[in-house]
């Protein structure tokens, strides 16, 4: 794991192992916030930021807990760090962009329970990434999440104008759409290294 070129790690995480479409992480906000393009992009940015902070803290925490021999506390420690990071983002957004804060609504505190973020922390620990690799991994995961969210929002905005058969409307349609999107992303499978 130690000698992956950073650019390759980034590309693999964004495209071939896209967090949402290939690894099924962060599906709740993906289905929940992808209705409009205007909220999808900021949501992606906020999530990416929390991912970076979480990845940074998780790296330090993991080193500390391993040194103390308290690995079984890892999960609890990670989730506490993520919850505080989300609180931070929430306060900053509320102060500097109240409109965006209202648009994101309930999904902002729910970033805490976005499994993509805990996923970043857990995967970087399991794969023993170095500090720099962890940061690149987190950025890639965030970029991939944003990409998927923005693509999906664009598609759903177009779909609102289309005549859709009655029973397919709502979540069923969103899921089938996500399936098609995921099928396209499978085309990137050969790119870079796997796990």
């Amino acid at each position: 794991m130690a000698d992956i070129p950073l650019a390759q790690l980034f590309l693999t995480t964004v495209l071939a192992n896209n967090f949402v479409l290939a690894m099924f992480l962060g599906l709740c906000p993906f289905l929940g916030v992808s209705g409009r393009l205007a909220t999808a992009a900021p949501m992606g940015a906020a999530t990416t930021f929390v991912m970076l902070v979480a990845s940074l803290c998780a790296y330090g925490l993991n080193a500390l807990l391993t040194w103390l021999g308290l690995e079984f506390l890892r999960l609890i420690a990670y989730i506490a760090v993520i919850a505080s990071a989300v609180q931070l983002v929430e306060m900053v957004l509320k102060k500097y962009s109240p409109a965006l804060f209202r648009a994101l609504g309930i999904y902002l505190p729910l970033i805490t329970t976005n499994c993509a973020i805990l996923g970043v922390a857990l995967f970087q620990t399991a794969r023993e990434y170095s500090f720099i690799q962890s940061l690149v991994f987190a950025t890639g995961a965030g970029a991939g999440f944003t990409l998927a969210l923005v693509l999906m929002a664009g598609l759903r905005e177009r779909l609102r104008l289309a005549a859709v058969p009655d029973p397919v409307q709502g979540t069923a349609l969103a899921l089938i759409l996500a399936g098609l999107l995921s099928l396209t992303f499978m085309g990137f499978t050969g790119l870079g290294v796997g796990e």
């Binding site: 099924f24 397919v168 709502g170 069923a172 899921l175 499978m186």
Partner: peptide, 14 residues
């Protein structure tokens, strides 16, 4: 594969 998960759940909901 991943797309199958979306399709099958979409199918059940449908």
């Amino acid at each position: 594969q991943p797309p199958g998960g979306f399709f099958v759940l979409g199918g059940w909901l449908l």
